[in-house]
Amino acid sequence: MTAHKKYNNLQVEIVDYKPAHQEAFKSLNEEWISTHFTMEDSDYKVLDHPQSYILDKGGYILVAVYNSVLSGVCALIKMSDGEYDFELAKMAVAPAVQGKNIGFLLATAIIERAKSLHASKIYLESNTVLKPAINLYHKLGFKKVAGKPTPYARCNIQMELVLK
């Protein structure tokens, strides 16, 4: 299944991840994490090896291309905890194009992908200092939930989206 949707009024295309996107996937995420927090071992594992940590385990990564430039990424990580089907993770938009609705388009596309896979619940972890991201998640219908164990020291909020 290929995501290849063009949003004409924005010159944004949402496409499936290819190995050629790995460096951008890593650098976009490193940029936002390093701006607000500290990169952690769990970040490096996923960002250095998205094929084995996300894709080979039944997950997906979508990429936003804005005016022909790779400008955003978002992952859907398969979960096996019995409660959630996927985790929305590693969403990043280049600072130069933030505020252009690219994060919303990426998140909407990743949620649509989860729905197409018959997912019933999506989980995410974030930090409340990331106000635009938290506002986006609320706008998409995510609700705050209490505490699953997390590998990230920076996580201070966990949310879920019920699809069914």
Rank of each mutant, 00 (worst) to 15 (best):
H4I: 12
W32F: 10
I61K: 05
I157N: 01
E40L: 04
E83V: 12
G59Q: 05
M39A: 14
M39V: 14
L28A: 05
P132D: 01
P149E: 10
L62C: 05
D56I: 07
P95N: 10
D85Y: 03
P95F: 07
R154Q: 12
L161E: 03
T108Y: 15
V129H: 12
M39T: 09
H49E: 07
A92Q: 01
I54C: 08
K131E: 07
A146M: 10
E40H: 06
I102Y: 02
Y84Q: 01
A64V: 07
K115Q: 15
Y60L: 03
L76C: 08
S116C: 08
I111W: 04
I14R: 11
F37P: 02
T2A: 10
S42Y: 13
F104D: 07
Y17G: 10
Q11I: 13
Y53N: 15
I77C: 02
T2C: 05
K90V: 03
P149L: 04
V93E: 05
H21C: 07
P95Y: 11
K131W: 01
T128C: 09
H118A: 15
E112T: 13
A89F: 11
V129C: 12
E30H: 14
A24R: 07
K100V: 07
G58C: 08
A153V: 04
A75Y: 00
A92W: 02
N29C: 12
Y60G: 06
G82R: 10
L140T: 04
L130D: 06
K139D: 06
V46M: 13
V145T: 10
P19M: 08
A96M: 04
K100P: 00
F142Y: 09
Y44L: 15
A94Y: 10
A24W: 01
N67G: 04
S80F: 13
Q98C: 06
K144D: 08
S27V: 09
E125K: 11
V12I: 07
S126G: 06
A94F: 10
I157Q: 08
N127G: 15
T38W: 09
A64I: 05
V93F: 12
Y152M: 09
Y152D: 12
G99M: 05
A109L: 01
L10G: 02
P50H: 04
A153K: 08
H21W: 09
A64H: 05
L88H: 04
L117W: 14
E87F: 11
N29M: 03
Y123K: 10
S42M: 06
T35N: 15
E83A: 09
M39Q: 13
N8E: 14
S71N: 01
I14K: 11
P149K: 08
G82D: 10
M91F: 00
V46T: 15
D56P: 01
M79N: 08
L55A: 14
V12T: 03
